[in-house]
Design a protein around this nucleic acid. Structure first.
Length: 275
DNA sequence: GGTGCCCTGTGG
DNA sequence: CCACAGGGCACC
């Protein structure tokens, strides 16, 4: 599910609910979700720790703990973090539950079980989670036309595939790559090296602009988030192309094309996004 | 670079 | 029944 805007939304909700909370108990229903270290050590080291701050890096969430350790999480496709009252019905694919000092629970659910946790010691170098391979944040002032050109400008891959990589600019997934390319008026199948300076400039503009727009549109209160069970994202009515294949382009009315690019389903307007 | 895989659920 | 789903990685 979650790309950067969704992870940011969840982060903002959890920050209100988890900051300062101590982990009193841990129930691990599916040890596979713990990528590192071994599940028993993971539980032993987390027990009794409290959450100091919550950060986001790319699509990863980072819980900074009072003892200097950090808990990392990647939600992948269907992962979901939710703070609930203890009596709240347990969802079917709940793999991990933290009971907190104030009586509430932090639950991790994930239907497809792709999501993973990592727990790193204070000064421990993280070569496990993949977070060390991430490129700059989309809101980094370093993200300029020049930066994009240097990163992708010689690549034969399509620009859509480049945007999905996390190594130069992180956080963009399949939905927002389509939205970004649509507003930048760039055909997703354009080979990266073929983009003009004007187009790199537009892209550098639209990447942070679109992502922050959707962060705004995502905004929920903790109550709303619980009601939506951390799953339904409210931003979908604002998506202009993703999920709208076969419908009319919101700009020119042309029928939107749906096509697999780099193994991912993609929607675009052949008239607005010239090849 | 492509392809398959990790998983479960849903919709055609 | 099969194709596909918002992510990422290993493996030719």
């Amino acid at each position: 599910m979650p790309e950067l805007p969704e992870v940011e939304t969840i982060k903002r909700v959890l920050a209100l609910q988890l900051t300062g909370q101590k982990i009193k108990n841990i129930t691990l229903n599916n040890p596979k979700v713990i990528a590192y270290p071994a599940a028993d050590e993971f539980q032993r080291r987390l027990l009794g720790q409290s959450v100091e701050t919550i950060q986001r890096r790319g699509k990863y969430m980072i819980l900074q703990l009072a003892n200097g350790e950090r808990l990392l999480l990647h939600l992948r496709m269907t992962g979901c973090l939710l703070v609930t009252p203890p009596e709240y019905p347990l969802a079917k694919h709940t793999h991990l539950v933290f009971s907190l000092e104030n009586g509430s629970e932090l639950r991790f659910e994930d239907t497809r079980r792709f999501g993973r946790f990592w727990l790193l010691k204070k000064e421990e170098e993280d070569t496990y989670s993949g977070i060390h391979k991430l490129g700059i944040e989309p809101f980094d002032p370093l993200l300029t036309a020049q930066y994009l050109m240097a990163a992708y400008g010689k690549r034969r891959k399509t620009i859509k595939e480049c945007l999905l990589e996390q190594g130069s600019v992180c956080g963009i997934g399949n939905i927002y790559s389509d939205e970004i390319l649509f507003t930048a008026k760039i055909h997703p199948e354009r080979q990266a090296f073929s983009l003009t300076e004007e187009e790199w400039k537009k892209l550098a503009e639209e990447i942070p602009k679109q992502l922050s727009y959707f962060i705004e549109k995502n905004a929920v209160t903790p109550d709303e988030y619980l009601q939506l069970q951390g799953k339904e994202y409210r931003n979908t009515p604002f998506l202009r192309v993703y999920g709208h294949g076969g419908e009319n382009c919101p700009v020119c009315g042309n029928v939107l094309e749906k096509r697999v690019i780099g193994g991912r389903s993609s929607v675009f307007c052949e008239r607005c996004q010239k090849k």
